[in-house]
Amino acid sequence: MTILIFLITAVIVIAAAIQLNKYGDVINQKSSLSGALIGTLLIGGATSLPELTTSLTAVYIDNPDIAVGNMLGSNVFNIMILMVFDFIYRKKKVFNTVDNRTHLPVANTGFFMSAILAVFIFWDSSPSFFQIGIEMYLLLIIYIVVMKRLDSEDEEVEQTSNLTLKQGTIGFIIAALVVFGAGSVLTIAGDAIAQQTGMNSSFVGSFLIAASTSLPELVTVLAAFRLAKYSIAIGSILGSNLFNIQLLVITDIFYQKGPILNIASMSNITTALLGIGMTAIIIYTLQRPSVKRLVIYALPSTVTIILYFVASYMMF
């Protein structure tokens, strides 16, 4: 019964998160606060709200492993989504067609942030201020600096929606409330599954819940690939991963028993290291010279997919 509740709730989260993305785009188009950075934060926040609600609920039920594993696992799953589509569309040689000047700084930042998380998960007695890990302050500063550099120019937002700002705002709020409720149930059900089956809470958070909350990103990337907007697909995944790490900062603020990475189990290091490795493959793929043979081109995506499932098996 618990598994059925988990699956039904996961479907609700996916549907509501898709609506969040839709209405978030309306607000981005119609609001005077649009611009590159505001739009990115709004849409990024919309698609990442399931991760936030599930992790905050995990904090409420005092399961830090699900809270941390959900964020780390969502980032890993996001990269896996991108590389699966890169493999499927390998004849298009997607990474050979995009301008890496925008994507590389974001990918490098994601790699550096993931490395910081891995270090502080391993160092389980790191210092804190106001019960918040010192690493969280560092991650927030890095994010702000990078976002300001990327937002050097405002871009004109294409007006494609017939909805008004009021309609978009109301729709966004309703969808957000649905995600908040469903995301909370998803986490509680995941915690129950871990207790009933004896599965590791880190595995449940990193792979079961993370996969469920990341499915809206899958829909977004699928749409971008079908429209041949490969740069949007890559940018949405890399940007979403940076945003997810900031949600971990918010989670640590609400977890008042001490730095959450100090308390989370060491098993989360597997997911953190997997994130570092998969991000490194993305960076390599963005920088490598164009290749003609499909077998050679598809190697990075193939290795990424294999790494994901090997790590899933190890944690299970």
Rank of each mutant, 00 (worst) to 15 (best):
G190Y: 10
L163F: 15
P289L: 12
D154N: 15
I281T: 14
V157I: 12
S74K: 04
A194G: 08
I14P: 08
S126H: 11
A58K: 09
Q287P: 05
P289M: 13
L247Q: 06
T213V: 13
D86S: 15
I263K: 07
N162W: 05
A264C: 10
T279N: 12
M314F: 13
I3N: 04
T220G: 04
M199Q: 02
E217F: 04
V178E: 04
V179S: 07
V59F: 03
M80G: 10
F120C: 11
A15G: 00
Q29L: 05
S74I: 01
L299Y: 11
L140E: 05
T160F: 01
M199R: 05
A118V: 11
I250W: 05
S48P: 02
L163I: 03
K292F: 07
I14A: 13
T2D: 10
T213R: 14
A192L: 12
K30H: 06
S114N: 13
I232P: 03
S55Y: 01
G198P: 01
L273C: 12
M266E: 14
L150R: 06
F120P: 04
G277V: 14
I142N: 00
D151V: 00
Y23H: 14
I245G: 02
A228G: 01
A17L: 01
S114E: 00
G35W: 05
V84W: 10
I245D: 08
N162I: 06
N21P: 01
A58M: 06
I79A: 08
I3T: 15
I269Y: 08
L165K: 14
T187W: 05
V157F: 04
G275K: 09
L218Y: 14
A107H: 01
V106H: 04
M278R: 02
T40I: 13
T304G: 09
A115K: 02
L150G: 11
L72R: 09
L42G: 08
S236L: 02
S126K: 07
G69F: 00
G277W: 09
I141R: 00
L4W: 01
M278K: 11
I81D: 07
N262E: 05
Y284L: 09
I61L: 06
A311E: 09
M71R: 00
S301M: 14
I132C: 02
I237Q: 08
I116T: 03
N200D: 12
